[in-house]
Design a protein around this nucleic acid. Structure first.
Length: 831
RNA sequence: GCGAAGGUGGUGGAAACGGUAGACACGCAUGCCUCAGGAGCAUGUGCUCGCAAGGGCAUGGGGGUUCAAGUCCCCCCCUUCGCACCA
């Protein structure tokens, strides 16, 4: 009988569903485990990345369930977003219709994988009962000043027709979704004050031991902390001043110029006071610099450009006058957009000073050297040392000087020590239709009016027509836009921008815990029991997007009192799966190297697809798709089938009693017993401790090979054989649940394999009777001997040295030393 | 430039502690079975010298520590990814 997966797989999915095998409920007697996958965007069909993600997730959920954990393993859909609008235009449908259809299809696909989801908990973010609570969170944040509206230069993607958050501008300044270069635009937009949490977001990373180092570093880079002094520099004879920030206040006496960004507001103020010719020149320079794209700036290779404003700044530390320049290397969106130029101790300032002939004053020297001659310096000295040319602070080591001068500035009221972050507030407005409406109304009398909680949700009008040119459909819904002010009843307009979809995905893992709840976003008791997520599985591309936003939301939720105050992090474990590669490149439609999961499942079955994916590569590395490899996995499952089917008589009549190792006689049966238990031991450790799923599969293949080669199938041999087959099926279950269940049933079991207890390795069965030890001469492998295991060092040496072959090997040599490692080797050092 | 992860057969990938490098698969080869096979089974398969026995060489390159190094230390090269004029 052949391996008929097309009959077996649907059969077992039906049985699991009928028995509600994987529905999660609280059970205080068991340790809980929250296994979570990054939920999919309903793009229309699963791709191999999804298949990999969910194969890893389901394996984990099933493994832990069998190991006595109370597992919650939910799935849902991140179902708002641009592609639905684009598809609506192209296919002349409505985003809601397109999305719903896709979700239905993808649910079918997910089911065909055999994942053990709790299907009662499906969450769809585009449904009013979900986004109502996204809006509610927005209102809570608004109340606390965490959501605010401001006019600012923002990232604009022309292709998407919307603004983007900083995190969504990637690489060389392109849109994360469509790779279009992003431009800056001045707009009034809604922001979330994620920077209020910057320090905590950074500090908590130290405790996330279950996260890959790579992701931690990426987040640390992204949040970017620097401690320094913010201070004012007066502009001579003008009544104006420049705010600057520095981490090296100890070098203040070395300031020889001040630079401001081309976009700095002071540029126009200074320009007003210039002679017309100069003004034109300066404004032209500033606008040329400001309009350059990120790519342009990088392409210039660090060659700095600048222009002298003709104004002078006064160094607060010593009253010295220095020129004020506009420079392209000063960024308006970091610090204050202005710096003190200290060429002696900052390489960028050095390059700039050399190019434009500005002064260089060394104010830090190394302890055992004199003050360097500025003319002879070939580069800036950025290393710590001892202050010089710094008046009363001469002689202080850098660290001390930073502290003392900082204090001095604060005492005089010149500045303030503070911490700067690279992280910017989260811009959440999107000029799109298919998203969560921002629950705000604009009233001519009352201004910005938040929609009262009891009026939520502000429902997205489903009769909107998506403009073919890609604009925001909400603008074409006057009945929806025009409303009354909840405050005063006067005519008012609704906010037509919707929320960034990353808001939807920032709290969905809470919603799974009490889906459909009407009285709040989630139940406190559910969160207390299930949170945090113990293992979160998804792609690394979210390292600085979703994974920062969700951490921020979790902290806000905790501060709102909706969860325990100590629930500060949502995900204690994180597994970032690698990409799926084919022919050396990421699978993509444009390269034409995509493999359709549906076709693989149809041709080989879900068990084969899952097995290949888990076997071909460790989860966190990239996976090379190989059609031949898939066939290999399929062949293996065929062998497992035959192993059971062809030996069914022996297996059925075999004793189910476990025969302990010390009651077993005969090398072959003892060898099999050992193989069974060492396999169980290794597989368990590979999955639980190492997440080395590929080697776990390899062990199971070895066990299968061992069972197939086993010939003593009578008496104790039959019992051990059956024990081995059962161990194989139990261990295989999380990888290939359908076929494992089928064969388990064939063995006469009535209970579900998926809910059976994971096998335990019997330590006494792990010992071996004899081992192969090697003889090395001067570290080179020479002979192999089979000896009883457990010999002591001396016994081993004695045994090996007395061998005829050993004698021949060392004949005529002077033995200097003999090293022995029990059960491993003997190394003879000889001349 | 900074940071992270990598570099092992023809291929994907294995090797807690430094202790038989290449598990397990794919591919390939030979044979068996078969009317046939994109089926199944068996055996072999790092490179190299050799008829063989038996040598030699091999984990990106170069040094070092050690009886013994893919593994530890130093220097260098390459690949991928992230950040990047961050004051």
């Amino acid at each position: 009988m052949a391996y008929d997966f097309s009959a077996i797989e649907p059969k077992w999915r039906r049985i699991w569903e009928e028995r509600g095998a994987f529905c999660a409920s609280r059970d205080e007697r068991l340790p809980k485990f929250y296994c979570l996958e990054m939920f999919p965007y309903p793009s229309g069909a699963l791709h191999m990345g999804h298949l990999r993600n969910y194969s890893i997730g389901d394996l984990t959920a099933r493994f832990l369930r069998m190991n006595g954990y109370n597992v919650i393993y939910p799935i849902g859909f991140d179902s708002f977003g641009m592609p639905a609008e684009n598809a609506a235009i192209k296919m002349k449908t409505h985003p809601a219709e397109w999305t719903t259809r896709n979700i239905d299809h993808m649910i079918e696909q997910l089911k065909s994988m055999g994942c053990s989801y709790d299907w009662k908990r499906v969450v769809k973010t585009c449904m009013p009962d979900y986004y109502r609570w996204s809006q509610w969170f927005f209102l809570q944040m608004y109340k606390r000043g965490l959501a605010y509206r401001k006019h600012a230069p923002v990232n604009w993607c022309e292709a998407c027709g919307t603004v983007l958050a900083n995190e969504q501008v990637i690489g060389d300044g392109v849109c994360w979704r469509c790779d279009t270069p992003v431009v800056k635009k001045g707009l009034e937009q809604w922001f979330l004050r994620i920077t209020d949490y910057a320090g905590e977001l950074l500090d908590c990373l130290d405790e996330l031991n279950g996260w890959p180092e790579r992701v931690l570093t990426m987040q640390r880079n992204w949040i970017g902390r620097s401690e320094g002094v913010r201070f004012d520099i007066a502009v001579a004879d003008s009544g104006l001043s420049i705010e600057a920030f520095t981490t090296r206040i100890d070098t203040i006496f070395g300031m020889t110029f001040v630079s401001i960004a081309a976009e700095h507001p002071l540029v126009s103020e200074l320009a007003e006071r210039m002679a017309p010719d100069k003004r034109a020149e300066v404004l032209e320079f500033a606008s040329r610099m400001a309009s350059r794209s990120a790519i342009d700036r990088t392409a210039s290779g660090g060659d700095k450009m600048g222009i002298d404003t003709g104004f002078e700044a006064i160094n607060p530390a010593n009253g010295r006058r220095v020129p004020i320049w506009i420079a392209d290397y000063i960024l308006m969106d970091y610090g204050t957009g202005a710096i003190m130029g200290v060429p002696a101790h900052d390489q960028r300032d050095f390059d700039f000073a050399r190019k434009f002939g500005l002064g260089i004053i060394p104010v830090v020297r190394s302890e055992d050297a004199p003050i360097p001659d500025p003319g002879a310096m070939s580069r800036a000295t950025e290393a710590d040392g001892v202050s010089c040319n710094s008046g009363p602070f001469d002689g202080l080591p850098t660290e001390k000087a930073i502290e003392k001068i900082g204090e001095w500035f604060e005492e005089r009221g010149w500045g303030k020590r503070e911490t700067q972050y690279r992280l910017r507030d989260w811009l959440i407005s999107r000029q799109r239709y298919w998203g969560t409406p921002i629950p705000v109304v604009y009233c001519d009398r009352c201004g910005i009016v938040p929609v009262p909680e009891e009026l939520l949700p502000v429902e997205l009008p489903l009769d909107a027509v998506i403009p073919p040119n890609g604009g925001n459909a909400l603008l074409g819904c006057p009945d929806w836009v025009n409303t009354v002010c909840p405050n005063c009843g006067a005519p008012a307009r609704r906010e037509t921008d919707t929320m960034d979809t990353f808001i939807c995905s920032s709290w969905y893992f809470f919603r799974y815990l009490s889906p459909g709840l009407d009285s709040g976003p989630f139940s406190r008791s559910g969160a207390d029991y299930w949170m945090p997520v113990d293992l979160y599985i998804g792609g690394i591309e979210h390292a600085c997007l979703h994974l920062i936003y969700a951490r921020f939301f979790t902290k806000v939720i905790s501060d709102l009192g909706l969860t325990a105050p100590d629930l500060r992090e949502p995900f204690t474990g994180l597994l970032t799966q690698g990409m799926v590669i084919k022919d050396g490149a990421k699978m993509s439609k444009s390269l034409g190297n995509v493999v359709d999961p549906d076709e693989i499942i149809k041709k080989y079955g879900a068990d084969t697809a899952r097995l290949f994916i888990l076997f071909a590569s460790p989860p966190d590395r990239s996976l090379d798709w190989s059609d031949k490899g898939v066939e290999g996995a399929h062949r293996f499952l065929g062998r497992v089938c035959r192993l059971v089917e062809e030996n069914l008589t022996e297996l059925s009549s075999a004793s189910v009693e476990r025969v302990p190792m010390d009651k077993l006689a005969g090398a072959e049966v003892r060898g099999l017993k050992r193989l069974i238990h060492s396999t169980v031991d290794r597989v368990t450790r590979d999955i639980r401790d190492e997440r080395q799923l590929n080697t776990a599969v390899a062990r199971l293949m070895e066990l299968c090979n061992g069972l197939a080669a086993f010939s003593h199938k009578g008496g104790d041999g039959a019992a051990v054989f059956r024990e081995g087959v059962e161990a194989l099926l139990l261990c295989l279950c999380p990888f290939c649940p359908h076929i494992s269940e089928e064969l388990w049933q064939m063995l006469g079991h009535g209970e579900l394999l998926s809910l059976s207890k994971w096998p335990e390795a019997d330590g006494s069965a792990l010992s071996v009777d004899s081992v192969t030890v090697v003889l090395q001469v001067n570290g080179k492998l020479r002979e192999q001997y089979s000896v009883p295991s457990g010999l002591s060092r001396d016994e081993l040496i004695e045994r090996v040295m007395s061998e005829e072959a050993t004698r021949k090997r060392v004949e005529g040599m002077e033995i200097v030393k003999v090293i022995a490692v029990p059960d491993k080797l003997v190394n003879v050092v000889a001349r």
